[in-house]
């Protein structure tokens, strides 16, 4: 039909670049690494790296979880509340003499159950995901606050020590992130990947194509719930105690990380890799603001502004280069 005079080679290169939705996030990440080499003292030391990954692993994990939901055309803003809930349950159980292992398992089961609840409300009761997870945020967060009205308790020293150490020469949280990514890789080779991307693009069409829409929705919210649970254990290792509110901001930061990472909130587009770099970039923003000797009361403001600029940049970039098709 319509033939274009463009060089085929060039267009195929452009095409494959345009498929790399994670490029803006990776670029931002690298830029901020370079920036921090200059402004942050001891940036490239293992001590700093441990601190960095310890603090940011929860965000990375939750970003991985929420990515899957976003790709499938949903959204989950309850992950912060799930994180809080698992954190306080874990600390309470440990405080009551439970072993680390059994408390962790109970925590993960609770996280999974929370995800399943989200999945049922969205998948089977057809409540729009934003509203559904908005309501469950109030439910999960409420339970967390009920269990532990004020911060307290302490995590087992074993967890804190391992989590804040080098393991096989790398910061320990990296292994948890890699494990989560491996789960995703397994999913990628199953039909679920095709189901997720098709649903994200058009739920109704996917249903007509015999995609098990409800079950895939149940899966994706359960998956994100479980990752929030793992993130909560990391958060516990990082803050060393229970806090009914500490995890709440993670829900929104994770979504911002995904957007910067090239995942479209309208679904069906983007990659997990982008979200990981988006989350690491957000972590670097905080490092940068802390290093920049800004009036401490204005640090929140500046990190907010940098995130805003990052999201604007990512959005503009992806519109310019990714929507050629």
């Amino acid at each position: 039909m319509i033939t274009h005079g463009t060089d085929k080679k060039q267009s195929s290169v452009l095409k494959s670049i345009s498929k790399m939705t994670f490029l803006p996030a990776v670029t931002l990440f690298i830029l901020f690494v370079i920036l921090n080499i200059f402004i942050t003292r001891r940036f490239l030391t293992s001590g700093f790296m441990i601190g960095f990954f310890t603090a940011n692993a929860p965000l990375v994990l939750i970003a991985i979880g929420v990515s899957v939901v976003l790709i499938g055309g949903g959204i989950d803003i309850s992950l912060g509340a799930i994180t809080c809930l698992v954190n306080v349950v874990f600390i309470s159980l440990v405080g009551n003499g439970w072993s680390f292992g059994s408390a962790a398992i109970v925590g993960l089961v609770i996280a999974l159950v929370c995800g399943v609840i989200n999945g049922i409300i969205v998948g089977f009761f057809r409540v729009p995901p934003l509203l559904a997870t908005f309501a469950t945020t109030s439910v999960f967060g409420g339970i967390a606050l009920w269990i532990m009205p004020t911060p307290g308790g302490s995590a087992p020293m074993g967890l804190i020590n391992w989590y804040n150490s080098l393991f096989l020469g790398l910061p320990a949280p990296i292994f948890i992130i890699v494990a989560a990514l491996l789960i995703w890789v397994a999913i990628k080779y199953s039909p679920i990947r095709i189901w997720l991307y098709s649903m994200g693009r058009d739920e109704k069409k996917a249903y007509m194509s015999a995609v098990p829409v409800k079950w895939t929705q149940l899966f994706m919210y359960s998956f994100s719930g479980l990752l929030a649970g793992i993130g909560a254990l990391c958060l516990t290792g990082s803050i060393g105690s229970g806090d009914p509110l500490a995890g709440l901001p993670l829900a929104l930061s994770a979504i911002a990380a995904c957007v910067i990472g090239g995942i479209s909130l309208s679904g069906g587009k983007g990659s997990i890799l982008g979200s990981v770099f988006g989350a690491l970039f957000l972590g670097l923003v905080i490092t940068t603001v802390l290093s920049a000797k800004i009036n401490p009361f204005y640090q929140d403001f500046f990190s907010g502004v940098i995130i805003l600029v990052g999201v604007i940049g990512a959005t503009l970039l992806s519109r310019k280069f990714m929507n050629k098709a």
């Binding site: 929104l252 979504i255 957007v259 909130l265 009036n295 907010g304 502004v305 999201v311």
Partner: peptide, 20 residues
Amino acid sequence: IPPLVMTLIMASVVNGLTLG
């Protein structure tokens, strides 16, 4: 930028501004 994300980020900017 999807309004949800845009206004969420603005929430943290505005809270930061008030704090400062």
